[in-house]
Amino acid sequence: MNESADAVADGQVIEKLGSAVDRIRGQLAQVIVGQDEVVDQLLISLFSRAHCLLEGVPGLAKTLLISTLARTMNLSFSRIQFTPDLMPADITGTDIIEENRSTGQREMRFLEGPLFSNVILADEINRTPPKTQAALLEAMQERQVTVGRVRHQLSDPFFVLATQNPIEQEGTYPLPEAQQDRFMFKVLVSYPSFAEEFEVARRTTTAITDTVSAVISPEEIMTLQRLVREVPVSDHVIRYTLSLVRQTRVGEPGIPEFVADQLAWGAGPRAVQFLIVGAKARALMERRTHATVDDIQALAKPVLRHRIVVNFAAESDGVSSDDVIDRLIQSTPAREDELANDARFKAIFAS
């Protein structure tokens, strides 16, 4: 067993990292009221070394949550307001001609753009043209930007949080499904409860301001990201994950009838990868040394909702992707023996 795997099995290391997550949640709670599930999904995504797409109406503290999260981790933060006239160079940076004072000669120098931070808030990503969207998505995938013929490495850790407004679609350039697939999670930020909104109103209408302290370092974050990959997952959990995802693929063997009736397109292999890695991160955050089927079920909606497409008939009946995911979870046996002996899943395993 290598050193990282030993660390996963070490109860002291697990407790230390779990304690760090608790401290992050505690610091966020000083500023953010509620949204516990959103916070946990952001942390899972971060520790999985992935990115998030957030969708919610204006005024739900998405920007405040992200900037506060960066402060609790001592990470640099950049907010980019995406607009129709935003160009790729505005976010990646550009080469400029500058005079060298010591030699008197003019030289090319790269001026870094806002992407050169640890945490990037891509605000209203669907308001900018595809060319600029593509520049951001290239940085997310490769963790580098290319200007001219020179490649520039981005900061590590590097975490992109993109937001979309679900109610204003005028003058937008919606992200194609293939580009949404680059995001690990699509997180839905909902309205607060009455008690939470009461507390928000009480806090934000006084002169008192809450301070947030950094409780974890970038180095510790990268250590946790490495440890996540070493968390063990049983073959049964992998088979369960594959069964869940493969059932979304219309035309494949063993899919339920309601999937064929309601879906136009299913999730690809990246959904399986993100579900398993996310399950590992969730297990580690909860001080467990192995991932379970419960972890997969808990993360199924944020991982799959932007990777499956309901057809027109289902959409007209008010069926959402979350509704389909709920039915898939209910119809997929969680127990290993039941999954292995079900004729429908035997067809899926053999496909």
Rank of each mutant, 00 (worst) to 15 (best):
Q141A: 15
G171M: 13
T163G: 02
E219F: 01
E177D: 06
R143D: 00
K131L: 09
F159I: 15
F158T: 02
L137M: 10
R182H: 15
T206G: 00
Q164D: 06
E197K: 03
A162V: 06
V200M: 14
F185W: 02
R203C: 01
G171S: 13
Q179S: 06
V145L: 10
I208E: 15
E220V: 05
P174R: 07
Q169C: 00
L137C: 05
D210W: 00
L137E: 01
P157E: 04
T209Q: 14
T172G: 12
R149M: 04
V212Q: 11
E199Q: 14
Q141W: 05
T163F: 13
T132G: 05
A178T: 12
Q169V: 06
I221V: 15
A178C: 05
Q169D: 05
S155H: 13
D156K: 14
Y191L: 12
T205G: 01
F158H: 03
A162L: 07
R182V: 12
F158I: 03
I216D: 06
T132S: 05
S155V: 13
E199V: 07
S190Q: 11
E142S: 03
P166M: 07
S213Q: 15
T132D: 02
P157Y: 00
T209E: 12
V212M: 13
A162E: 07
G148W: 12
Q141D: 10
E196C: 03
E138T: 08
T172H: 03
V215D: 01
V215N: 05
M140P: 12
F158V: 02
